[in-house]
Design a protein around this nucleic acid. Sequence first.
DNA 1: ACCGTGATGGTCT
DNA 2: GACCATCACGGTG
Length: 248
Amino acid sequence: MPVRRSLLAAPVLEVAPKLLGMVLRRTTDEGTVAVRLTEVEAYDGPNDPGSHAYRGQTARNAVMFGPPGFLYVYFTYGMHFCMNVSAGPDGQPSAVLLRAGEVVEGVELARRRRGAPASAETKFNQTAGVRSAGLSGAGVRAAGSSGAGVQPGPAGGKAAARRNPDWELARGPARMCVALGIDREANGVDLLARDAEVQLVPGPGFEGEPSTGPRVGLREAADRPWRFWIPGDPTVSAYRPHVPKKRA
DNA sequence: ACCGTGATGGTCT
DNA sequence: GACCATCACGGTG
């Protein structure tokens, strides 16, 4: 059962901490992966220079301007996706960035999707001059699923698993998207629909009070403590201030 | 463990 | 043409 929409219609600073301990679940023909949310950030539209919606509605950020409970997925740094849950009443463009979580279902599928990033296999193929036609992602997937189900974890075995432990599968917004298989196609999905491919469900919650602090990597409004996380949870990502890029 | 940096393309000015 | 709600790697300690 998805959560009630009225729960997400509140002001985003109230909604964000309530998402901690809830579960985001995605089911496809590949299987199901579910993540218990451990770290989120609030983005408050017109009141928030750090929000994509601060300067008004565009094609990209349109989902934030709609009703609560929909998925806003955006593409950034030329290679990563991040996802938000729209919050607040219809017409108020606020959203909660989902920054990290603990994989609580479908760990094997999540491992396969996350693969073994640029480890021995990739390097070998590059140095050997093997033309890869999409081997970077698909090849890893195939390698993981081709066996008789005996081989666990990312391609590369124990060494790769050590560098890529399960608690890092969804530690960080782009990693969590990979673990769940979220990309631009999921933009605009209703997370509260009964038959939705991606669903937000209540989950186990957590004990105690959320920690708060400044949001990660923002240039604008870098001081607002609108990041919320479950204290002590190893899946919470590291804080990182904004770094200006070198100029040519 | 921590820090610096390259990769890579969509979006907005 | 600048900026990016990031990640993984390699170098250093």
